[in-house]
Design a protein around this nucleic acid. Structure first.
Length: 342
DNA sequence: TAACAGGACAATC
DNA sequence: GATTGTCCTGTTA
């Protein structure tokens, strides 16, 4: 375990600048639209580290990646200080090691001589790297925010109930095409989950325990970062990326409506554009591209494993007489229209 | 065959 | 009571 990265599609093809071996372009978080079809995971997903892998280290590459990308001059760092709490002990240790290996930490001697051009280019490289690092970490945090919204769970895994844990596992399985693990983690709270080692994950889920553990590491690390950035504001709405959302249902703690859920998916085309997308945003016309996946996401969101498109569409049709959703003037399969578009 | 329309009833809040 | 999940029959593309 611990030898696979999480971004198979992102790990190849793009030229990586020297010293940037830890950066998966362009995002650290896998985009479902870029992932291969559901099925057996490809072996040999690339692992890129700034340093040669340390076989004795239990740190999963994905968690390492996040922490190696943690720039010392980001908003989180300026607002907080100190090492991550015990919630991400390994990651914390790695972060120090990782940032030490980052190329923007100049090696002694470099840039100290008369080589002005070299110094200038190093400064330029520093600046670019910091920008990319900030962007990548920001994207990871935004995607976690998205997941929190969709699942109506806290950002901090230690706050999860056993039901939240099940939601998160189902969602992670779905999002990253992991083998389904059934109820191996049933009855575990978030605290229980966070206390488990990678080996324990693998015991419960031999097929993808290491991946799940790595994802959990990322969530734990993100929660730690956000806590440092804004103490007491890490539950649901710590990120302003949702401030422009017309539907902020989960912040209110109210049960989400289907139409709100659909809008939330539509507001995140980067993540869900393959499943549902606007045909005409101004008119509120959207198309469900993958009815089964949308239904599955809705089922996860509502804790209804038996949800399917037949039932989901029945609920949509209930909106006809309520004047929330209707079929467009030119009716097409899987195409609906919000009566009051955003 | 899948999507669609809508009736009926149950479950949940 | 509102919402929506579930099951159903029948229709349409």
């Amino acid at each position: 375990g611990g030898s696979r990265a999480l971004e198979p599609a992102l790990s190849g093809g793009m030229a990586v600048p020297p010293g940037l071996t830890a950066l998966p372009p362009p995002l650290a978080w896998p985009d479902p639209a870029l992932l291969p079809p559901r099925g057996p995971r490809p072996r040999g997903w690339a692992v890129r580290r700034a340093q040669p892998p340390d076989p004795s280290s239990p740190c999963h590459p994905s968690a390492c990646t996040l922490h190696m990308l943690y720039p010392e001059d980001t908003a989180w760092a300026t607002k907080g200080a100190g090492e991550p709490p015990t919630a991400a002990p390994r990651a914390g240790g790695r972060r120090r090691e990782g940032t030490g290996a980052m190329p923007h930490h100049r090696q002694p001697g470099l840039g100290a001589g008369p080589e002005g051009d070299l110094q200038g280019s190093l400064h330029l490289e520093e600046h670019s790297l910091e920008q990319v690092q900030s962007m990548v970490v920001g994207e990871v945090l935004k995607d976690i925010e998205t997941a929190c919204k969709l699942l109506n769970i806290a950002a901090d895994p230690t706050d999860w109930s056993p039901g939240n844990v099940q939601k998160w596992i189902l969602w992670t399985e779905h999002q990253y095409r992991l083998p389904q693990i059934g109820k191996s983690f049933q009855e575990l709270s978030g605290k229980d989950l966070c206390a488990m080692s990678e080996e324990q994950f693998c015991q419960r889920s031999p097929g993808c325990g290491d991946i799940l553990h790595a994802h959990l590491d990322i969530w734990k690390s993100a929660a730690w970062m956000k806590e440092k950035a804004a103490p007491g504001d890490v539950r649901y709405c710590g990120d302003t990326s949702w401030a422009d959302s017309e539907v902020d249902s989960s912040c209110a703690g109210q049960p989400i409506h289907l139409w709100q859920f659909l809008k939330e998916l539509l507001l995140k085309p980067h993540n869900y554009g393959r499943f549902i997308r606007w045909l005409n945003k101004d008119k509120g016309i959207f198309k469900i591209e993958d009815s089964a996946q949308v239904a599955r996401l809705w089922g996860i969101r509502k804790n209804r494993p038996a949800m399917n498109y037949d039932k989901l569409s029945r609920s949509i049709r209930q909106y006809y007489k309520k004047g929330i959703i209707r079929k467009p003037d030119i009716s097409q399969r899987l195409v609906y229209q919000f009566v009051h578009p955003v």
